[in-house]
Design a protein around this nucleic acid. Structure first.
Lengths: 337, 337
DNA sequence: CAACGGGTCTAAACCGGTTTAGTGAGGCGG
DNA sequence: CCGCCTCACTAAACCGGTTTAGACCCGTTG
């Protein structure tokens, strides 16, 4: 509720409304003296532009949207969004843009549609890309600028922020191989999610590169519960793996607990790796070997890119810090047969 | 970017702009026939009101703000915000309000000030209340409606959503007492935070009620790291506690790992309780006894209350689901002396 | 029959900015 | 000395809604 309006400033400075607007936006056509006077008056009055009015007149919302398409119970344990949002916000606020959040349990397409139609945002961020995701097409149809965050699966969409999960998983597999493991299993995320798929692929590729046979895979859903179930399944095999590469920390954590509860030693009998490097996993017993990524940096890059797209600028490619394997106590050479 | 404007609808329906506005807002003064025609035309054209324009003319932003005043690295491991936000959003979106997020590393007062001056929001939510928190006063000064979420420490602020941490902690202490523990320590959060303080107080009160001597307290900062440090400190005492009540799950987790790494059995040698009931703690080894709260419900209640305050309505008191102790494997009777 | 009243609708002001068209003064060249 | 151009600025339109004042038509009533 900005008390003084541009009219008040104009009156107080004895000039027209337009002149004030020019002066405040550093546009030519105002003498230095007048400009200085206007700025001074504006400052004295404590004037700040009304975003509402500006948004209407420039036909821009000065805000971008993020749709969280995960149900609350999943969101709860999520390692990604808080950091991502923090990254987004630092860049957005520097550019006077606000971040609008929308939580859509399932029907996220409607959420995007609403955001677009109500004219609340100038663009949106798309995360958690699914296979055959209908959202990019929808956004194109709506004419809403967007940046897709995820593995750049083909350059099908122009504004993609390439996030490559593969190197991290590959590093994990290589690490296990170098320790001497030969039966390396994988607990994947749901294969409709593009990043779950790409992590699984990376695991398979790395095994092949190492000249090892493909290990068993169990598809889970990124939740701790599902990780526990998957782990039981793997350990019940006639020839259980000596190491498991999990697609995220939550499942790895739960898996580790399952192994311990079955009387297996970690890493003695079973090595375990995660992905995300959540704060707590460094404090588990044993601390978890995992892949760390700079999600805040992703957020910053995504925001910067979206602003470029909105502004019609040529998005300049950003170099994201690569995922990095953090070796802790949950991995060790396999027990000799 | 709503293509058709109210003018297009008016023209197509052969009426004036004002008539359309009346018809669409169910205001009297329009004949049923005309109203029906206008609505039909609007539907055919796929018209949706521009929030931008509406916001300007009704002098309301139709959005509320939430300032996350935690640094990214803390936000990362946070159990609270994602759920809280999910709760907020369900209510807000039902009422056509958007949620604006701002992340302020430290200088959160500026964030609130900006939100208010730019006229981006109609009200804000205040969480993580600190002792002698300057924010309520600032918001009062700014004339920005607000709802404070936190322990209702005195009715100093009108619009407070009372969240009582005490019963949960008390239940944890009582549980430990009933198991036979007599040396019950506490690892608290930073005492500048109101909820950290109230949890600590609840612990102290419960001990007194049980007729037990006050146990040792170590002040930590809610992070896993600090929980680990605090736990070492407690276990190094000449007479170490047989049970530790932690102010949150993250610290409890780390504490449990520390105990295990020192060769102590949990819960054999040390019982441990947490607070928050993060998803993963049920999958630890042993699973953590902790306090569960319905944060999504808080979010809903906070949003509802804020909308009432904004609308000038008398906020009707909401009954929040109480915190509840969830007993799992990390607590057991103390080893006999 | 004129005055009145109620219902329906239009015209125009308004929210607070941005932007365009246009005006008047002054400087310069011819 | 005149015409032209530039500079500094004003007036007004515009964004897309809401809202107020008032016009018009119709049926009642004294």
């Amino acid at each position: 509720m900005s008390r003084p309006t541009i009219n008040d400033v104009a009156r107080a400075a004895g000039v027209s409304k337009g002149a004030v607007s020019f002066a405040l936006n550093d546009r030519p056509g105002i003498s230095p003296a007048t400009r200085a006077r206007i700025l001074e008056v504006a400052r004295d009055l404590g004037w700040t532009p009304s975003t509402r009015a500006r948004a209407l007149s420039v036909s821009r919302a000065l805000a971008v949207g993020l749709v969280l398409a995960r149900p609350p119970e999943v969101l709860r344990a999520d390692a990604f969004f808080p950091s991502f949002i923090a990254g987004l916000e630092t860049v957005l606020s520097q550019h006077g843009h606000a971040l609008l959040l929308q939580v859509a349990e399932h029907d996220d397409l409607t959420a995007y549609r609403r955001l677009a139609q109500e004219g609340r945002v100038d663009g949106v961020l798309v995360t958690d890309l699914r296979v055959d995701d209908p959202r990019p097409a929808l956004l194109e149809e709506l004419g809403l600028p967007a940046v897709v965050v995820g593995p750049a699966l083909g350059a099908r969409y122009a504004a993609v922020l390439g996030v490559d999960d593969a190197p991290g998983i590959e590093a994990a597999v290589e690490h296990l191989v170098s320790l001497g493991h030969e039966r390396i299993a994988h607990v994947s995320g749901p294969q409709v999610m593009v990043h779950a798929r790409s992590r699984r692929q990376a695991w398979a590729d790395a095994l092949e590169t190492a000249g090892l046979a493909q290990g068993p895979v169990v598809e889970a859903d990124f939740s701790a519960e599902s990780g526990a179930v998957a782990t039981h399944e793997l350990l019940d095999l006639v020839e259980p793996p000596t190491a498991i590469v999990y697609s995220n920390d939550l499942m790895a954590m739960a898996g580790m607990s399952v192994a311990l509860s079955r009387g297996l030693a970690v890493p003695g009998d079973l090595s375990v790796t995660g992905y995300d490097d959540m704060e707590m996993v460094a404090h588990l017993q044993p601390p978890l070997t995992t892949v760390t990524t700079d999600v805040v940096a992703w957020g910053k890059a995504a925001a910067a890119r979206l602003l470029e797209v909105i502004g019609g600028l040529e998005p300049d490619p950003v170099e994201l810090p690569p995922a990095r394997l953090v070796v802790r106590g949950s991995t060790a050479p396999p027990r000799l047969v």
